[in-house]
Design a protein around this nucleic acid. Structure first.
Lengths: 229, 229
DNA sequence: GACCAATTGAACTGTTTCGTACATTTAACA
DNA sequence: TGTTAAATGTACGAAACAGTTCAATTGGTC
């Protein structure tokens, strides 16, 4: 089975022909180099964790050199922090793209749960990065600015939908938006984060398309039942 | 705040007075030494992951020496595997202690969910170890014998209770015992595994007693609603 | 108290790994 | 075309680290 682990190649600059790494002539493309390093680094951190990842290995897989990693990111932790920030920026973007205000409460919850589930299933790298970060007690999230403010928007979104559902009489009272979010997240996260151990212990592959689809429907149903009267 | 990270000291042998590590005289207590090493190693692996943990550091924190680690466990991976096996053996024991057959279906599910939730909350080390193992694609669970058979019992237990609930008309049809288990696990695991990142992003501490209790009730309620007509 | 096997200590080895020094090349622009 | 600052390559240093060597000590047993 080939290509199960496809490395994010992404040439640093279009002017540097693929296969001719480190050729004599190149176009200045600091942003491309940065992105290239970040993509490779994410793969490595996701695969081996923070301590497990090797700077030399990352360097070897980029179109540039180890020198550039330190040039742009300072040190290994700086690189890791950049990877982490990018990952969180992405999911924020995703969440912003949701427009629940236009949907009836029930449909809004179905949509939110489905999208959240899919985002996790489609982006195991994000899930694994969050796992790695939690092993490190989220120390790097802490030292990183601009992460705190963003994700509160999800809670606000849920709060708005929940209020609406309450007024329309479809949702039951006494629920906490954070609790709702945690439930949706837990049901979306766990299948991906614990896929390997579940596979080993139960011989059940959560990644298989049918299993995933069944689990998706189950998650949506569960969240609905949690909310509705 | 002292003692938030209490190292499992556990002297290797009673005859070796605490504080007098490596004294001239000792009692033969291979099992005690083994347990001491395992306890310290678990702390280190749980705290730093497999790659992050340092054999020298583990050795320094035991009442014995690095030599003994290699003497008993072969190498770092062997030690890690032993820690992992012990952790799974423990939760198996816990699960065996449950007697759901004597309870009416609803109460059985309430009990199972509550106990599972509590076990995870009370044993963050187990949760973190499973996270570490999943980062490594559960490679060590695979190479370890005797892990597969044990946990199927939970599924059987759930299956039995579910069947009973169906016959008595309290549960709805069409559910899969594995799916039920995954839901209970997800709701129990996530709060612990992602506690640090949730704390950072939402400023909400899942570990605080009130938050934990609220979440516990929510999990039970959610599982009940998932199952009942 | 003598013997043997289990158990232990300390120093050491070879490798891995992060990070840097230093020289050099190149793009951009006057 | 000459100047300058940004960008890059190579080779190296120093520390960290897993695992080993070799000798020695000790407990149990007869």
């Amino acid at each position: 089975m080939l290509g199960s682990r496809k490395t994010n190649e992404m040439p640093a600059s279009p002017a540097r022909p693929a296969g001719t790494r480190k050729s004599a002539s190149w176009t200045q493309d600091p942003d491309g180099v940065r992105r290239n390093i970040l993509a490779v680094a994410r793969d490595e951190f996701v695969e081996n964790g923070l301590s497990g990842a090797r700077v030399d290995e990352i360097a070897a897989k980029t179109s540039t050199s180890k020198r550039m990693i330190y040039y742009y990111f300072g040190d290994k932790e700086g690189l890791y922090r950049a990877v982490l920030e990018e990952a969180y920026a992405r999911i924020r973007n995703f969440e912003r793209s949701l427009d629940l205000a236009g949907l009836p409460p029930r449909e809004a919850i179905v949509s939110l749960t489905g999208f959240t589930f899919d985002y996790h299933a489609d982006n195991p790298d994000f899930v694994r990065l969050v796992m790695v970060e939690n092993i490190h007690h989220a120390r790097h999230l802490q030292s990183s600015p601009k992460i705190a403010d963003l994700n509160l928007s999800v809670i606000d979104m849920i709060g708005e939908v929940y209020e609406r559902g309450l007024r329309e009489g479809v949702f039951r009272e006494g629920l906490d938006p954070i609790d709702i979010h945690l439930t949706i997240s837990a049901l979306s996260f766990y299948n991906v984060s614990n896929r390997a151990s579940i596979q080993q212990v139960f011989g059940h592959d959560m990644g298989a398309p049918e299993a995933r689809e069944r689990r998706r429907l189950s998650a949506i149903e569960t969240v609905l039942r949690m909310l509705c009267r």
